[in-house]
Nucleic acid binder design. Sequence first.
RNA 1: GGCGGCGUAGCUCAGUCGGUGAGAGCGCUCGACUCAUAAUCGAGAGGUCGGCGGUUCGAGUCCGCCCGCCGCUACCA
Length: 549
Amino acid sequence: MGEPRYILVGVAWPYASGSLHLGHLGGAYLPPDVFARYHRMVGNRVLMVSGSDAHGTPITVKADQLGVTPAEVVERYHAEIVGYWEKLGISFDLFTTTMTDNHREVTWDMFRRLEANGYIVTGTSEQFYDPEAERFLPDRYVEGTCPHCGYDAARGDQCDNCGRQLDPVDLIEPRSRITGATPVMKETTHYFLRLSAFQDRILEWLRTREGWRRHVQNMAIGFCEEGLQDRAITRDLTWGIPLPPELDTIGEGKRIYVWFEAVIGYLSASKEWAARQGDPEAWRAWWENPEAETYYFIGKDNIVFHAVIWPCQLMGYGGLNLPTNVPANQYITFKGAKASKSMGVGRSIGWYAERLQPDALRYAIASVFPEQNDTDLSDEELVRRINEELVSTWGNLVNRVLTMVAKNHGGRIPASGVLQPGDVALLSSIDRALEEEAELIERVELRAGLRRVMEAATEVNVYLNANAPWKAEDPERAATVLWVACNAINGLKVGFAPYLPFSSQTLHRMLGLQGEVGDDGWVRSRLEPGLEIGPVEPLFEKVELSQLT
RNA sequence: GGCGGCGUAGCUCAGUCGGUGAGAGCGCUCGACUCAUAAUCGAGAGGUCGGCGGUUCGAGUCCGCCCGCCGCUACCA
C-alpha cells in the first residue's frame, strides 16, 4: 500500500421538503457510505459531504401547504434527515444545508468568477406574471386545464392526472395558484450560464472517461450531442440565494436558481468542514490536488447535472477537480411503483429504522442496490434477505463458532496445532475474498462486493461441516479447526464492516479485541490463542413480517 | 414525439472482446449433519435469455422493427 489517496465523496443533496424513503437510501445515501467506509479502512483520506437543499420550489410549495416559512420547513426536515444518518450510521464528515453564510459566499465566488471569465451573460425571456401579487410565477405556481386530458387542476410543469409534461402556456385558462388571477406574459431579464461554450470540451472529456456506468456515460454524452443551450441561472423569486450585490442589476426580486447553487454545495461543504477542523485550507487537498479522486453518488434523475452541468461550472471556474466517476444508481421501486416523495409510496427511512436493526436494514438495501437496473423491493423481500441471508449465513456462522469457543474452550481462542492444507486453503480463500471485494468496491460494484463476502462466509460454513470440530475425537485437531474458523471470521468481519459497521464492531469486541474494527486496515489480522472472548450473543435477530405492519 | 437505460429460472439479479451443454442467491424437492438463531452442507428439478426478422460457421451478446418498464427532454433538481 502506497501513499494515502484523497477521496472526495459527494452525496446528492436531499430536498428538505419531505421525508426520505428506502429508495433514496439505496439509490443515493447508503452506497457512498459503504464506499467511504471502505476507503477509510484502507487508509485513504476520505471527505464525504452533503446537506439539505434548502431552496427550490418544492420547499416553498411545502411551506405554503403548512402555513410556515420556508426556513421552518427546512429546519424541520433537516432535523429528521440528520436523524436517519445517525440511526443508520451514514458517516458524513459534514452534512450541512444550503442556508449557511458560507454556502452563499462560495456560491457568490463561483458566480463572480464565471461572470468574470465570460461564462455568465444576461438574457431575456417571457414568463407568466401574476398582476395581483405583482410577482413572476414559477411553472408550478400556474394551474389550469390540461390540454391533453382536460384535467382542470394541472400544474404548469406537469399534469398530475395524465402525467404529461406541460409548458405553462399550453394550459387552458391558466390561473395563478397564489391569487387565482389570470397570469400575463411579461418580459424578464436573467443571467445565463453559457453552457454552449463548453460543448466541445465537455464532450471530449465525457468520451474519454473510463470505468463509468454505461447508462451514465451514454446519458451525458447524448445530452451534449443534442447541443448544449445556455441556461438561466436566476429566477424571479424571493426564496433563494440573492445575487452578488454588485451584479444584482437586472431587476428587482432576483434569486440564484437552485440548480446552479445546490451543486456548489459540494465545494462549500468541503470548505465548511475545513473551517470546522481549524484548518480552513484543508479542502484544497481534495479539490486542487490533481491526484485526488472525486465521486458523486446520485440517482439517475440527476445525471445531467452532475456529469455535464456541474463539470462545466468547474471547468469555467478553473483549477478544481472534475468528477472521477459519477456512479449514478437506478431506482428501487416498491412493488413496481417508484418510491417517491411526491407520490407518497413507501414509508420513510425513519419508519424502518425504528423497527429494524440498522445493519439488518443496511444489508437488505445493499443487497439490492440498483446499480444496473431498477430493482423491485417489498417488505417480504426485505425480511427474507435479512432472515435467509444475513442471519442464517453470517450471523449463525459467528454464533456457532463462538458458542463452541465459549463452551469447549473456556471462552478463549483455542491453541492451534499444525495446520493441514485445508486449513491454510480456507484462510487464504478469505484473504482472496477481501482482495476481490476491494476490487469490486473500487469499481463501485458494491452489490457484488457484498455478495463476495457472503460467498466467503459460506465457505467457512462448508469448512466447519467438513471438519466437524464438535465431534472432538481428537481434541487438538478440534482446537485447530476452531482456531482457523475464528481467524476466518475475524477476516470476514473486515469485509463486512463497510456494509455492516455496527455488528462488525460488536463482533470485533466479542472476539476480545480493542479499538475499532478498521484499525488494522483492510486485512485479516491474526487472532492469538488464549485471547479471551467476550460474552457471546447473536449479532442479529430474525425479523417477523408483522414487525413491518 | 426525441434521447438514454433496462427486459435472462417462481422471486431478486450476474453474464467482459459474439465461441464447448445459459449462471448465482433465495424459494421448491430429495438427502446428509446436529456445534449453531428449525441454523448448516450436498444433490436435483426449474429457462423458446420480451417478440419478430437479419448478419455470422456460431447470437443472451451485433443490426433493424415492434411491445413493456424507468429516467431525461433545459422553469423539479
